[in-house]
Amino acid sequence: MYDERRERRKMRVLLGIAILASLTVLAAVIPSPYAIERPGPVVDTLGDVKIKDETMPVISISDAKTYPTSGELNLLTVTIVGGPEHPASWLSLVPALVDPSQRIAPRSEFFPEGESEKDREAANTVMMDSSQMQAAAAAFRQLKQPVTVHLDVAGVSEKGPAEGVLRKGDRLVKANGKDIVDFVDLRKSIVAAGADKPLDLVIERDGKEQTVSVTPRVPDGGEEPMIGAVLATSYTLPAKVDISLSQIGGPSAGMIFALGIYDQLTPKPLLDGLTVSGTGTISDTGEVGAIGGLTQKMWAAARAKSDLFIMPMENCADLPSTIPSDMTVAPVKNLDEAIHAIETVTEGGKPAGIERCETP
Results as ranks from 00 to 15, higher is better:
residue 2 Y to M: 10
residue 3 D to E: 11
residue 4 E to A: 10
residue 5 R to C: 01
residue 6 R to I: 10
residue 14 L to F: 08
residue 16 G to D: 05
residue 16 G to V: 05
residue 28 A to Y: 10
residue 29 V to E: 11
residue 32 S to R: 03
residue 35 A to T: 12
residue 35 A to G: 05
residue 42 V to Y: 03
residue 44 D to V: 02
residue 44 D to Q: 07
residue 53 D to A: 09
residue 54 E to K: 06
residue 56 M to E: 12
residue 67 Y to K: 04
residue 69 T to L: 00
residue 70 S to V: 01
residue 89 S to P: 01
residue 95 P to T: 06
residue 97 L to W: 03
residue 97 L to K: 11
residue 98 V to R: 04
residue 101 S to L: 09
residue 107 R to Q: 14
residue 109 E to W: 14
residue 110 F to H: 14
residue 111 F to R: 07
residue 118 K to T: 13
residue 119 D to V: 01
residue 125 T to L: 11
residue 133 M to T: 06
residue 135 A to Y: 00
residue 135 A to D: 08
residue 137 A to Y: 02
residue 146 P to D: 08
residue 149 V to M: 10
residue 152 D to A: 14
residue 154 A to R: 06
residue 162 A to W: 02
residue 163 E to G: 05
residue 170 D to M: 11
residue 172 L to D: 06
residue 180 I to M: 11
residue 182 D to V: 03
residue 186 L to F: 12
residue 187 R to A: 05
residue 189 S to Q: 08
residue 190 I to E: 04
residue 199 L to P: 13
residue 200 D to N: 09
residue 201 L to C: 03
residue 210 Q to W: 02
residue 211 T to M: 05
residue 211 T to C: 06
residue 211 T to E: 10
residue 222 G to P: 04
residue 225 P to R: 05
residue 225 P to I: 00
residue 230 V to G: 04
residue 234 S to Y: 07
residue 236 T to I: 07
residue 243 I to L: 02
residue 244 S to H: 10
residue 245 L to H: 06
residue 253 A to N: 09
residue 255 M to I: 03
residue 259 L to C: 15
residue 264 Q to W: 03
residue 264 Q to G: 01
residue 266 T to Q: 14
residue 267 P to R: 00
residue 268 K to I: 06
residue 272 D to Y: 02
residue 290 A to V: 00
residue 292 G to Y: 06
residue 292 G to M: 12
residue 293 G to V: 09
residue 294 L to N: 13
residue 294 L to P: 10
residue 295 T to S: 07
residue 297 K to W: 00
residue 299 W to N: 14
residue 301 A to H: 05
residue 303 R to Y: 03
residue 304 A to H: 12
residue 305 K to F: 01
residue 306 S to G: 08
residue 309 F to I: 15
residue 317 A to D: 12
residue 329 V to L: 14
residue 330 A to V: 04
residue 334 N to V: 02
residue 338 A to Y: 09
residue 340 H to P: 00
residue 346 T to F: 15
residue 350 K to G: 11
residue 351 P to D: 07
residue 355 E to Y: 10
residue 355 E to T: 03
residue 358 E to L: 08
